[in-house]
Simulated assay, not measured.
Amino acid sequence: MMSFMFQLLREDEGLPPAVVFEDSTSPGFVPLWEEIGVYEALYNSDGKRAREVSRAIAFGVDRASEEAALTRLLPAGLTLEEAVRFLENVHRGCTTHPVAEVKTR
């Protein structure tokens, strides 16, 4: 199974884009991302600025942290804690590098 990669790229004038944040996770989380409202911010945000997706990610962290029943959406081997860790990392990256460009794959 391939992983989903979320990156933030910073472009300094005259220099090639630099990856300032990168994390990956399982595509098995897609049903959870859809349920908590972060799918668009994660998968359809190429070219946007990090600050444009950080609020949606923050709401997703809150929902995933507070609703243990969301575990029902996860395939065997994946945990809600892992999902929250990934979203927290992405949110931290977005708030640390608000003007960085989002790249996903």
Rank of each mutant, 00 (worst) to 15 (best):
T79W: 04
Y43I: 05
P27F: 05
E34M: 05
Y43S: 03
V53H: 00
D62C: 09
Y43R: 03
K103S: 15
D23K: 01
T95A: 03
E13G: 13
R10A: 13
F29V: 02
A83F: 00
K103T: 14
V84H: 10
N44W: 13
K48L: 12
F59A: 11
P16L: 06
V90K: 00
E88T: 03
V84Y: 07
V84A: 07
I57K: 00
S24N: 14
G77D: 12
A83C: 00
S24M: 10
A64S: 13
L78W: 05
L80C: 10
P27M: 12
L70N: 02
L9I: 14
K103G: 07
N89T: 02
F21E: 14
L80G: 00
V90I: 10
E22M: 10
I36Q: 05
F59E: 14
S26I: 10
F4Y: 13
R63N: 12
R63P: 03
H97M: 05
G93V: 08
V20K: 10
E52F: 00
E52S: 07
E82M: 04
E35T: 10
L32K: 00
L15Q: 14
D46Q: 06
H97N: 10
K103H: 11
G37T: 14
T79D: 14
M2D: 15
S24V: 12
L8Q: 13
L70G: 02
E13D: 15
T104R: 06
G77S: 09
G37Q: 05
R92N: 11
R85A: 06
A69E: 09
V90N: 02
L42N: 11
P17Y: 08
S24H: 12
L87N: 07
H97K: 06
P31S: 04
R51P: 11
S45Y: 09
Y39W: 11
E22C: 10
G93F: 00
T79C: 07
A69Q: 14
F59Q: 03
S3I: 12
P98Q: 03
E82T: 09
I36S: 09
T79Y: 04
D12K: 07
P27C: 06
A69F: 04
F6Q: 01
E22H: 06
L73Y: 03
V38S: 04
E88K: 02
F4Q: 09
G93N: 03
N89F: 03
L15A: 14
L74Y: 13
E88I: 01
N44C: 13
F86C: 02
